[in-house]
Simulated assay, not measured.
Amino acid sequence: MIELENVGYSYGDGALLSDVSITLSPGSFHFLTGPSGAGKTTLMKLCYGALLPSSGMVRAFGADMRALSRDQMALLRRRIGVVHQDCRFLDHLPVADNVALPLTVSGRDMSAESGNLSELMKWVGLAARADALPPELSGGERQRAALARAVIMSPDLVLADEPTGNVDWEMSQRLLQLLVELNRMGKTVLIASHDLGLIRAAKSQVQARVLRISNRQVQLAGADL
């Protein structure tokens, strides 16, 4: 599904990632961990084409990302849902409209999609907050809205960058459960996180592999996690 082959990425005068080779297979569940500044967000951006590697190759669904036109890249990204760390929304639009933005941008018939949108809002526990504006949401509600927006197009791959970084343990467990449910539905999931408790909780529910960035390379973490 996503393959990084001998990938390197340089930022400014220094190398942030070097000789990284990983494969995200269909239906797999991965955590990406490592200290702050190690390159977790950069690696995730490489996975969905927001960045292109300085060396090596990134393939998404069999296609070399370097060879894609702008239109082809836009179509490919519809198959990848991204939960960004900063959860940006359009503050003048209700939550439901923010969640539905990918549908609007892609030209979908919104009247035909209204039922799916309602079901998704229920699934993330935000049906009662559909008409609220983003500034009125709690941190956990914002994260759930961000997850709903990421999966509204029914992507094959979900990338979540520190989705529980700004919420309490109870809410982090709820968010994890939603991501586990997506994986059980056949979605590939990659979560960037430094929360070892969250990783252990996930490994009790799914076969999660843990990838650790260390010294600019990505290694499979040991069984102690």
Rank of each mutant, 00 (worst) to 15 (best):
L68E: 00
R149Y: 10
R70I: 14
N6W: 05
V180W: 00
V99M: 11
N116G: 14
S204L: 13
L103N: 05
P163N: 05
Q205D: 03
D224K: 04
L52A: 06
V206L: 00
L4Q: 05
R149D: 10
S55Q: 13
G39Y: 09
Q143V: 12
S69A: 03
P35S: 09
M1N: 01
P134S: 03
Q143H: 06
K203I: 00
A160T: 03
V99S: 10
P35W: 04
G197N: 12
S154I: 07
V218C: 07
D91W: 01
T104K: 15
D161M: 02
Q173H: 06
R200Y: 01
S204Q: 15
L179W: 02
L133N: 03
L211S: 14
S204K: 14
R79L: 02
M121F: 05
S111F: 11
S154W: 07
L220R: 07
W123K: 14
Y11T: 08
S111I: 12
L52M: 07
R144Q: 02
D131E: 15
A74H: 05
G27E: 05
A130H: 08
D195Q: 11
L51A: 02
L198K: 02
A127Q: 15
A63Q: 15
A160C: 04
A67H: 13
G165S: 02
V218I: 15
A192F: 09
G34Y: 09
T41E: 05
L43M: 13
L52G: 06
G107R: 12
H30A: 01
G34C: 09
E141S: 08
L198V: 02
K122A: 15
R142M: 13
L16Y: 07
M44R: 05
L101H: 12
L179R: 02
A38P: 10
E136W: 06
L46W: 02
M73F: 00
N166Q: 14
S18D: 11
L190A: 11
D161Q: 03
K45P: 00
S114P: 07
G37R: 07
S111P: 05
L52F: 09
V82S: 05
R70C: 06
T104D: 11
M44W: 04
D168C: 14
V189Q: 00
H30M: 02
S111M: 13
R77D: 05
A100Y: 08
L76K: 04
V105L: 14
D91H: 05
